[in-house]
Write a protein that binds this DNA or RNA. Structure first.
Length: 170
DNA sequence: CGCGCGATTGTA
DNA sequence: ACAATCGCGCGT
């Protein structure tokens, strides 16, 4: 299959968030189709970790195509992919996927995704465009998806930056 | 160094 | 509606 290149991620974050729907995440022996994403920006987005530059968010200020994995609520990890040019902070949070490898079920929620396939902070800062065990490959074309406010945030609720496939959800 | 909170989830 | 659970970010 065809690995997605840096050019794809070097685009405005909402384009990448939409474009990732239907693509396939490869992580070791696991494969899964991306069904739901959220876009997070920089100084213009108070909901984003990159609203300010910190030791944690600095990865979002770096080059596109790099993984951003953070630990939250004392027990969950969340997987993102950095987008836009270096110096323009943004990332796409992967919220739900359908496993294409056993046990083939729906991974509905960013914490569940990382728990099930074993993504941790050890996988933070990895260049997904140069790896052979952790990358995103071209999947199916998605036409029907909805745009809604992002989940679990208190600021920036006005932005419709959550993208979710309408079918495929079973 | 101490403290409050969070891009979540499972249970009640 | 709420507890679990702890690293991060910020103030002192």
């Amino acid at each position: 299959m065809e690995k997605i290149t840096r050019d794809f991620f070097n685009d405005i974050v909402i384009n990448v968030a939409q474009g990732l729907l239907g693509q396939t995440l490869v992580f070791g022996s696991h494969k899964a189709m991306i069904l739901e994403t959220e876009a997070y920006g920089g100084a213009d987005d108070p909901a984003s970790h990159a609203f300010k530059y910190t030791t944690r968010s600095r990865i979002m200020f770096g080059p596109p195509g790099i993984s951003y994995v953070y630990f939250i609520y004392g027990m969950y990890h969340c997987l993102n992919v950095v987008t836009e040019a270096e110096g323009t902070p943004s990332a796409v949070l992967i919220r739900s996927m359908k496993l294409l490898t056993p046990p083939y079920h729906l991974l509905d929620g960013p914490g569940k995704i990382c728990r099930e396939i074993g993504i941790t902070k050890n996988h933070n800062g990895i260049d997904l465009t140069t790896q052979n065990h952790f990358y995103i490959e071209k999947g199916v074309s998605i036409t029907k998806f909805e745009k809604t406010p992002r989940i679990g945030i208190s600021k920036g609720v006005d932005k419709l930056w959550r993208f979710r496939c309408i079918e495929e959800l079973n």
